[in-house]
């Protein structure tokens, strides 16, 4: 199972990096989401792969799954979710204010003139 998970993480990270380097905000958001998925699976895998074992103390248990990565992943998911939501709103705001969805907001040469505070 290790190789399958490793390939999944690698593929998601590679796609995420590629999309993050794109020039439009929407692919960048998608890329960051993919990176977040990859890191979540990676964190989960760091607790080693255990199938069908409880994470809490049980008298009848033959072994245990590591509960800590599960807590970490939960925290990481919540943070990544909030950040992605914020980034989408920011990207929409940038689209509205700059008139296009390029990450540098092209074709507005008067940026230098109007120094906003």
């Amino acid at each position: 199972m290790e190789w399958l998970i490793a390939i999944c993480i690698g593929a998601m990270t590679a796609s995420g990096v590629y999309l993050t380097l794109r020039a439009r905000t929407f692919p960048v958001v998608l890329g960051l989401t993919l990176l977040a998925y990859a890191v979540n699976v990676f964190l989960f895998a760091m607790g080693r792969f255990v199938v069908g074992q409880p994470a809490i103390i049980d008298d009848n248990a033959l072994g245990y799954a590591d509960p800590l990565p599960q807590a970490l992943v939960l925290t990481a998911i919540v943070i990544a979710f909030g950040m992605t939501a914020f980034l989408i709103v920011l990207a929409l705001k940038a689209r509205g204010e700059m008139g296009n969805d390029h990450v540098d907001g092209l074709h507005r040469d008067d940026d230098e003139e109007k120094n906003t505070r």
Partner: peptide, 20 residues
């Protein structure tokens, strides 16, 4: 402000990559 939104977008994206 427009410039601030642009700088903010860069800042947020860079930091999200950093967090990952």
């Amino acid at each position: 402000g427009r410039l601030r939104t642009k700088a903010g977008l860069h800042y947020v994206v860079i930091n999200l990559i950093g967090s990952t």
